[in-house]
């Protein structure tokens, strides 16, 4: 993506942003995997560890933001490089939000672990997998500049949305049948919602990848 330039220092700065961005992506991917595990294995230790990771992610966000602003101010990039910096600034926000959702899931998992399991989780791990896959593939598409994969991620977001709706309906029946389950069911409902948001952020990243490669804005338009 970094095209030939007259100034090699500029290249170094751009690839540094890219490296830090992908590193942040890797950390966020790990957080998704770990918070799913914390939930499924009912591990409070793991949940605590994820909550502790949030600080690192926030710090990375600030650092990448600063780097991007620095490049904008000093180099005044144009065309492809400008698109890349704009995209980095947006992706960083999406990644940080995903990190936040993971922390929220971990917090809910901690609460859920205090009580017996409401029901065997079947759709939840499926949703978690779908969301994790979406994030992984969006970042892969970013690495390879792969528009095809990016477009597929945008299309597949519907699957996670449907799973979320299904979960909400199912948990509602639990709550209506037995009021003792309300608290736990509400927690699972919110976890489902968080996972759905993670997939949405992945879609945002994928849309940005399309913009970066083709210079075409596909947001808010049917794919």
């Amino acid at each position: 993506m970094v095209k030939e330039h007259f100034s090699s220092q500029f290249d170094v700065e751009l690839s540094e942003v890219r490296l830090r961005l992908l590193e942040m992506g890797g950390k966020v991917e790990l957080m998704i995997a770990e918070c799913t595990r914390a939930l499924m294995e009912r591990s409070s230790v793991l949940a605590e560890r994820i909550i502790a990771l949030d600080g690192e992610i926030n710090q990375m966000e600030v650092e990448i933001d600063q780097k991007c602003l620095h490049i904008l101010a000093r180099r005044q990039p144009a065309a492809r490089d400008l698109r890349f910096i704009a995209l980095a600034l947006k992706i960083v926000t999406d990644l940080e939000r995903i990190g936040d959702q993971c922390v929220s899931i971990a917090k809910q998992a901690l609460e859920l672990n205090r009580e017996p399991q409401l029901k065997p989780y079947i759709d939840l791990p499926r949703m978690a997998d779908a969301a994790a896959n979406a994030v992984r593939e969006a970042l892969d598409a970013f690495v390879r500049g792969d528009v095809e994969t990016a477009l597929r991620i945008c299309r597949d977001d519907r699957i996670v949305d449907e799973l979320n709706e299904q979960m909400q309906r199912e948990l509602l029946t639990f709550m209506m049948e037995d009021t003792a389950t309300v608290e736990r069911a509400m927690r699972i409902t919110s976890i489902s919602k968080f996972l759905e948001r993670i997939a949405d952020h992945a879609t945002n990243i994928a849309e940005m990848v399309v913009f970066m490669v083709e210079g075409k804005d596909i947001r808010h338009s049917p794919v």
Binding site: L19, G26, L30
Partner: peptide
């Protein structure tokens, strides 16, 4: 390619 393009595992980086 850069290692980060192969694997984004944080520990590797």
């Amino acid at each position: 390619k850069a290692l980060i393009d192969i694997s984004r595992h944080p520990a590797l980086q």
